[in-house]
């Protein structure tokens, strides 16, 4: 197990450098890093040259990349459009998004897996068909439609929730946005669990477990579920990364000042340093989430641990 962890950690290093290099190239080579610095107008050549010199953009590319990496490792992500250091933005944005993600993942696990288990065990029955149809609806409606609709109904018409989340964004205000954010993944998790359960239900080892005289509950929880959850865990783990970065739509709708909101601001105001900084951190989160998945995978399936 120890060697497996070390191997996985070592594999992360080239991926991290590769991903950051791509971000760096996309912004510095394909885009114009100083485009947004003079407000809405084009910078005049003299100012542009001065800015380039100031930011070291006149140096060779490899030197620029080294400077960028050096800054990343010392925690210097530059300043945002309003003069605040990007790290300060991160400090306020990430806790909010992490809370939102926790709520979303919680719903995915709780509702998604429970529905999946129920439908998988009762395949072909009315419960199964109904849930399957519902997941199809959820999957086919884009998040911004569900989000706006729920905001309109629950927030504006019926007044059950506040339509906009306060800047502090406590857990209690994030329940509905979390559900909206989770909705699509939740439907996926349901379907994934259902298929997995229905397939493993016929497995020989489940038959053995029944033949051993174990109560039905134990057969399902210890024998069937453990094996069926392996693909689901993979999906949920990868989804942590996706939810952290992909909450732009949901955060916009409910006015949550999280990562998605800051990224959006960075893009709209053409502030490269905000975007690059946040994306770099998101890459790290993605990598960590994937590591977590692989480790969980090994915990769940000993055949991988010893391979």
């Amino acid at each position: 197990m120890g060697r497996y962890v070390i191997r996985r950690l070592l594999q992360m290093i080239p991926v991290f450098f590769g991903a950051t290099l791509l971000i760096f190239l996309m912004v510095n080579v394909m885009g114009d890093p100083i485009a947004g610095l003079c407000g809405d107008r084009q910078c005049d050549p003299a100012t542009a040259a001065q800015l380039e010199k100031e930011f070291g953009l006149d140096k060779p590319l490899w030197q620029q990349y080294l400077t960028y990496m050096g800054n990343v490792f010392t925690g210097d992500f530059g300043t945002a459009f309003n003069g605040q250091p990007v790290t300060e933005l991160m400090a306020s944005a990430f806790p909010v998004t992490i809370r939102l993600t926790i709520v979303a993942i919680f719903f995915e696990i709780l509702i998604g897996i429970s529905l999946g288990v129920v439908t998988g065990l009762k395949r072909g029955r009315p419960v199964d068909t109904t849930v399957l149809l519902l997941t199809l609806v959820v999957l086919s409606v884009p998040t911004f439609v569900t989000g706006l609709l729920i905001q309109l109904l629950l927030g504006v018409k019926w007044g059950w929730i506040k339509p906009a989340v306060s800047p502090e964004a406590p857990f209690s205000e994030l329940i509905v946005p979390g559900l909206v954010l989770a909705s699509v993944s939740l439907a996926y998790v349901t379907r994934l669990t259902r298929t997995s359960i229905a397939e493993n239900k016929r497995a020989d080892y489940v038959r053995t477990a029944v033949a051993k005289g174990l109560p039905r509950r134990r057969v399902i929880s210890r024998h069937l579920l453990r094996n069926s959850l392996i693909p689901v865990v993979t999906f949920i783990g990868a989804d942590i990364g996706a939810l952290m970065g992909g909450a732009i739509v949901t955060e916009r709708i409910f006015n949550i000042h999280g990562v998605g909101y800051q990224l959006y601001q960075g893009i709209v105001r053409q502030n490269t340093q905000t975007v690059v900084g946040f994306v770099t951190i998101l890459v790290l989160i993605f990598l960590l989430a994937n590591l977590l998945v692989d480790l969980l995978y090994a915990v769940l399936d000993p055949r991988i641990r010893y391979a």
């Binding site: 020989d204 053995t208 024998h223």
Partner: peptide
Amino acid sequence: FQDALSSLNPVLT
């Protein structure tokens, strides 16, 4: 059972 590999649960000792 016939096939002990598939009849034993792969993820439990």
